[in-house]
Lab assay of single mutants.
Amino acid sequence: MGFKLLSKLLVYLTASIMAIASPLAFSVDSSGEYPTVSEIPVGEVRLYQIADGVWSHIATQSFDGAVYPSNGLIVRDGDELLLIDTAWGAKNTAALLAEIEKQIGLPVTRAVSTHFHDDRVGGVDVLRAAGVATYASPSTRRLAEVEGNEIPTHSLEGLSSSGDAVRFGPVELFYPGAAHSTDNLIVYVPSASVLYGGCAIYELSRTSAGNVADADLAEWPTSIERIQQHYPEAQFVIPGHGLPGGLDLLKHTTNVVKAHTNRSVVE
């Protein structure tokens, strides 16, 4: 069995187990497998329904001669939608809004960016022009300005110390501490036991640490421990890039980060 097929099978099995364990909360999309990078042309966006009122959005972007996937989250909030992270750029984010209108038909009224990198804030200006209120932590807003990236308009308070959590509509926002970046936030959907790890969490097929220019490698494993301790009931975990899975993604990420750190020390 090929690795790609095995990865998709694991996603399907995880979703099936969740649907059985929580039949009222989960209505997993039966329309197909989780979209992969090879299936999404740059400039297009796919939506994948995880649970009743919960979707991931998947886009792709060219970077350094390669094409990478990027995940975000959409959560229903009454007759409105909360968006977590842009679709990595203005063109993708405009396509995301169009796809949401086509498939869901509810307005996106608020959006949260989970850290300051372009795959999370690139497209904020498109959201703002569409009347979406954009939010991020003060740290993310400051770092985005320093980096020359787009800056969300509103500040999220109460997320300055490791372990801080605040309720934001249908989700809980959690600051686990520094990891992929010093400002990275985690998003949890309690009604569906869905954990969105953003770039602080890796997919299972990833074996290298990737972009760690703004990471705190020493603190990252401790931050992941905080996530595990705060959300032990999480059933569906979405990484910032690639295929979702279960809580095993947290341990896998820790292993990859520690291996990278150990290699760096040896070198």
Rank of each mutant, 00 (worst) to 15 (best):
E33I: 09
G2I: 07
V124W: 04
V121E: 01
Q228G: 10
G148R: 10
I50Q: 05
E80L: 04
Q103W: 11
V112K: 05
E145R: 14
S161F: 12
E44G: 15
E39G: 14
L82K: 00
V37P: 15
A51M: 07
L106S: 10
A98Y: 13
F168R: 02
S264R: 12
P170V: 08
Y135F: 11
I104N: 04
A90H: 09
S155R: 12
E219L: 07
I84G: 01
G43N: 11
T14E: 06
G210M: 04
S181N: 00
G197A: 14
I20R: 07
F174H: 04
L5G: 08
P239L: 05
Q229C: 04
G163Y: 05
V194G: 01
K4V: 06
A200L: 11
S22E: 14
G131W: 06
D79W: 08
A19G: 11
A19V: 15
S208A: 10
R141V: 08
M1A: 05
S38D: 11
P176F: 01
L159C: 05
N211C: 02
T140A: 05
Q229E: 13
S223H: 01
G89T: 04
I227R: 02
S205G: 10
A25G: 13
P41M: 13
G122D: 10
G163P: 03
A213Q: 14
A98L: 13
H117R: 01
D77S: 08
T109G: 12
V37L: 15
R141N: 08
P176M: 01
V146F: 13
T14S: 09
I58L: 11
V37W: 13
P244N: 05
N92M: 00
I186H: 05
T261F: 08
Q49L: 10
G43M: 05
H57W: 03
G32C: 07
H154C: 06
D164K: 10
S113I: 04
A66V: 14
E39P: 10
G245I: 00
F168S: 03
S31L: 09
S31D: 09
S30H: 10
S16R: 11
S205P: 08
E172W: 01
G240V: 05
R167D: 14
I201A: 01
S139H: 11
R167C: 07
S30A: 14
E80K: 08
G210C: 06
Y12V: 09
R142K: 14
A130P: 07
P239S: 03
G65R: 09
L173C: 02
R167S: 11
E80F: 07
T14D: 09
I100P: 00
I100D: 01
E147Q: 14
A259L: 09
G197H: 00
L6T: 08
L6D: 14
S161K: 13
V266P: 13
Q229Y: 11
K102N: 13
G78P: 05
T14P: 14
T207N: 14
L13D: 07
I84T: 01
K91P: 13
S181A: 06
V28H: 10
T93G: 00
S31G: 10
V108N: 02
G32R: 09
A179T: 07
S16G: 15
D164R: 09
C199M: 01
V45M: 04
A21S: 13
S208K: 10
L143C: 05
I201L: 14
A129E: 12
A234C: 02
D85N: 03
A165G: 12
D125E: 13
Y196W: 04
T253L: 03
S22K: 12
F3T: 10
A133D: 13
W88V: 00
L13E: 07
T261N: 15
V132M: 05
Q61H: 07
V42F: 07
G65Q: 09
S181Q: 04
V265D: 13
G53H: 09
T261D: 11
A90K: 09
Y175H: 07
L73Y: 02
M18G: 14
S7T: 08
V124R: 02
G246L: 05
L97F: 02
L83W: 02
E39Q: 10
L9T: 14
P41E: 14
A98G: 12
I201D: 05
R46E: 09
R263A: 14
N211H: 03
G245V: 03
L243V: 14
D29Q: 10
L24E: 12
F26N: 10
Y135K: 01
S113K: 01
A165Y: 13
A94P: 03
D29M: 10
G65Y: 06
V237F: 05
S160D: 13
G242V: 05
R46D: 07
G197L: 01
H180S: 00
L204W: 09
L195R: 00
A15Y: 12
E225S: 11
K258D: 11
Y48P: 05
V265W: 11
V132Y: 01
G105L: 07
S22V: 13
E44Q: 12
S205E: 14
H252R: 03
R206K: 15
V166D: 06
H252A: 03
S16E: 08
L97V: 00
R120W: 01
R76C: 06
Y188W: 14
Y202M: 15
S139Q: 12
V187S: 01
P35F: 09
L247Y: 15
H252S: 04
D119Y: 03
S264L: 09
V265N: 11
S137C: 03
T86Q: 00
A218K: 14
R128I: 11
I100F: 05
V166I: 11
K102R: 12
S155E: 14
L243E: 15
P170F: 01
V121T: 06
M1G: 06
A165P: 09
L10T: 15
F174G: 01
N255L: 10
V28M: 15
A218N: 12
H260E: 14
G72Y: 06
V54E: 02
Y202V: 15
I224Y: 01
V166Y: 08
S62N: 07
D52Q: 09
T93D: 00
S30D: 12
G246I: 04
V126E: 07
M1E: 05
H117A: 00
L173P: 08
V132L: 04
L217S: 03
S62G: 13
N262D: 11
G177F: 00
A218H: 13
V67T: 15
I104C: 00
W55S: 02
Y12A: 13
G105R: 10
S161M: 14
F174N: 03
A94H: 11
V266L: 14
P221I: 10
R167N: 12
G245K: 03
K8I: 10
L96I: 05
R128L: 10
V54D: 05
L47C: 04
Y34N: 08
A111P: 03
E44N: 13
A200P: 00
E219W: 05
T114N: 00
K91F: 08
A200C: 04
H57G: 03
L185V: 10
T253G: 02
T140G: 04
K251I: 14
G246N: 13
V146K: 14
F116N: 03
N149R: 15
R142L: 14
V42S: 14
H260D: 11
A259M: 11
S30C: 08
V42Q: 11
A21P: 08
H260K: 13
I74G: 03
K4N: 14
E145A: 13
D85Q: 00
D77K: 03
D118K: 09
F168N: 01
I17C: 12
I17R: 09
H260I: 07
A90F: 07
F3I: 15
S56M: 15
D29P: 09
S191C: 05
A94W: 11
R167H: 11
D119K: 00
H117K: 01
L159M: 07
A209W: 06
E150M: 02
T60Q: 14
D118Y: 07
G163F: 06
T207L: 12
L247H: 13
G245M: 02
L143S: 07
A21I: 15
T253Q: 00
N92H: 01
P190K: 09
S62L: 05
A215D: 04
H154Q: 10
V75E: 03
S160A: 13
A192F: 08
I151C: 02
E44M: 11
A25C: 14
G163N: 09
E219H: 08
D52P: 11
A136Y: 01
L159D: 02
F3V: 12
A95Q: 13
V67I: 09
Y196I: 02
H117V: 00
S16L: 11
E101Q: 14
L47E: 02
F168I: 07
G89C: 00
S161N: 12
A87T: 02
G177S: 06
I20K: 15
N71W: 04
V67P: 15
R128H: 12
V166N: 05
K102C: 07
R120A: 09
P35K: 08
K258V: 13
V75L: 05
P244K: 03
I50A: 05
I227F: 05
R263Y: 12
